[in-house]
Amino acid sequence: MTDAPARLRARPLSPHVQVWRWHITMATSILHRVSGMGLYAGALILAGWAISLAAGPDAYGLFKACLGSPLGKLVLFLLTLGVFYHLANGIRHLTWDAGKGLDIKSANASAVFTFAFTIVATLAVWAIAFMTGAA
């Protein structure tokens, strides 16, 4: 029992974030978790919308004013990014669950596609919102 610390010191350590080489699939995994947490915040905002709507015109007007402010629009823009990213990366994971696209080249290509789709879809939604006067 006295040599237990020596045995533990001799064991190899798993790579840690500081020594691991970053790659695109690693970033997509982390961002998938981040976007999922952001969607929880979006659900709270949606609940706040429903509560303000039920509370009457004054409460709803205040809610609209908050989301219509520059900070509110930034939050909504980030939520839009989160929705489209989580959607695209979720579909990517479903294809992996089917056993497709698991090689490194395909995984990297699908990660690039996920980012591209996220940016294009978000900008398209916000462009439509501005053109229709919704934003």
Results as ranks from 00 to 15, higher is better:
residue 116 A to H: 00
residue 41 A to L: 12
residue 47 A to Y: 14
residue 15 P to R: 13
residue 56 G to P: 08
residue 115 F to T: 07
residue 84 F to L: 00
residue 34 V to Q: 06
residue 5 P to L: 09
residue 31 L to C: 09
residue 86 H to Q: 05
residue 70 P to H: 10
residue 38 G to V: 05
residue 126 W to F: 10
residue 133 G to C: 10
residue 122 T to S: 02
residue 116 A to C: 11
residue 103 D to R: 13
residue 134 A to C: 05
residue 42 G to V: 04
residue 129 A to K: 11
residue 113 F to H: 07
residue 31 L to K: 04
residue 135 A to E: 05
residue 63 F to W: 15
residue 116 A to Q: 01
residue 4 A to K: 15
residue 23 H to Y: 02
residue 114 T to S: 09
residue 64 K to D: 11
residue 57 P to Y: 07
residue 128 I to K: 04
residue 47 A to F: 15
residue 3 D to T: 15
residue 12 P to M: 01
residue 35 S to K: 02
residue 100 K to C: 11
residue 99 G to P: 02
residue 5 P to H: 12
residue 91 I to K: 01
residue 35 S to D: 00
residue 4 A to D: 15
residue 99 G to Y: 08
residue 1 M to K: 14
residue 80 T to R: 00
residue 38 G to M: 05
residue 7 R to Y: 11
residue 134 A to N: 10
residue 36 G to A: 06
residue 70 P to S: 06
residue 124 A to G: 08
residue 74 L to A: 14
residue 116 A to K: 03
residue 72 G to Q: 04
residue 16 H to E: 14
residue 111 A to E: 01
residue 124 A to K: 00
residue 127 A to N: 13
residue 28 T to A: 07
residue 51 I to Q: 00
residue 18 Q to E: 15
residue 58 D to K: 12
residue 17 V to C: 11
residue 130 F to E: 14
residue 37 M to T: 03
residue 26 M to F: 03
residue 49 W to S: 08
residue 60 Y to G: 03
residue 75 V to R: 03
residue 83 V to L: 06
residue 17 V to E: 09
residue 44 L to K: 05
residue 116 A to R: 01
residue 111 A to D: 00
residue 84 F to E: 07
residue 86 H to F: 00
residue 96 W to K: 02
residue 16 H to R: 15
residue 33 R to I: 08
residue 114 T to Y: 06
residue 75 V to K: 12
residue 134 A to W: 13
residue 34 V to Y: 04
residue 47 A to E: 12
residue 93 H to I: 02
residue 10 A to S: 09
residue 103 D to K: 14
residue 105 K to N: 12
residue 115 F to C: 09
residue 57 P to N: 14
residue 16 H to G: 10
residue 112 V to M: 10
residue 128 I to W: 11
residue 11 R to S: 07
residue 96 W to S: 06
residue 135 A to M: 03
residue 128 I to V: 11
residue 84 F to V: 03
residue 44 L to S: 04
residue 94 L to W: 15
residue 128 I to P: 03
residue 58 D to Y: 02
residue 47 A to I: 14
residue 109 A to L: 12
residue 13 L to R: 15
residue 107 A to V: 02
residue 95 T to E: 12
residue 117 F to L: 08
residue 126 W to Y: 03
residue 52 S to K: 00
residue 75 V to P: 10
residue 128 I to L: 07
residue 33 R to H: 12
residue 82 G to D: 03
residue 81 L to D: 01
residue 24 I to P: 02
residue 41 A to R: 03
residue 97 D to A: 15
residue 70 P to L: 01
residue 43 A to Y: 08
residue 11 R to E: 08
residue 90 G to T: 01
residue 11 R to M: 11
residue 104 I to H: 14
residue 102 L to T: 02
residue 53 L to E: 13
residue 118 T to C: 07
residue 34 V to R: 01
residue 22 W to G: 04
residue 12 P to C: 05
residue 44 L to N: 00
residue 21 R to D: 05
residue 56 G to R: 08
residue 105 K to C: 11
residue 49 W to H: 13
residue 15 P to T: 09
residue 32 H to V: 00
residue 132 T to K: 12
residue 40 Y to F: 15
residue 70 P to C: 07
residue 100 K to G: 09
residue 2 T to Q: 13
residue 93 H to G: 04
residue 4 A to P: 08
residue 39 L to K: 00
residue 99 G to C: 07
residue 73 K to T: 08
residue 132 T to C: 11
residue 51 I to A: 11
residue 65 A to H: 05
residue 71 L to S: 06
